[in-house]
Design a protein around this nucleic acid. Structure first.
Length: 117
DNA sequence: GCTGTGACTTTTT
DNA sequence: TAAAAAGCCACAG
């Protein structure tokens, strides 16, 4: 991803690239804000990834529930609709979640840098 | 174009 | 070991 050809550096949309990566996360797997930020070449912009997620709530095509913090904790569950909670969506995909914590997080972790190359 | 902000992460008390 | 502080930066107003 990163900057697309033909698109000036000024027009670079960080959020758009975040969404693209998030959409690539396979069902039943989870990734982290930091990993996504690193893959996009903005290692110090992990917060921005979370910020992007906040804005993507009106985008059904972005599985924001598969993005957690580096400890596998569902820090953003309160931003989801109460009728479709983050942990419930994950469980439906086969991810065990106990007390806002992804179980076997290291095995579920999906690193775009490694998996996507 | 300056200011505040945040679904993070790392370092320092 | 747990809590607090500090970097970090794209985006919105």
């Amino acid at each position: 991803m990163k900057t697309k050809p033909g698109r000036g550096k000024h027009d670079y949309r960080f959020f758009e690239d975040v969404y693209e990566v998030v959409k690539l996360i396979p069902a039943g797997r989870v990734s982290t804000y930091g990993a996504i930020a690193r893959y996009l070449g903005a290692a110090r912009s992990a917060r921005m990834v979370g910020y992007a997620m906040n804005k993507c709530m009106d985008r059904p095509d972005v599985p924001a529930h598969r993005v957690v913090n580096r400890n596998g904790m569902l820090t953003g569950r309160h931003h989801f609709s109460p009728e479709f909670p983050m942990d419930e969506r994950l469980r439906r995909e086969g991810v065990q979640v106990v007390d806002d914590q992804v179980q076997e997080f290291e095995k579920r972790f999906w690193d775009p840098q490694r998996e996507l190359l």
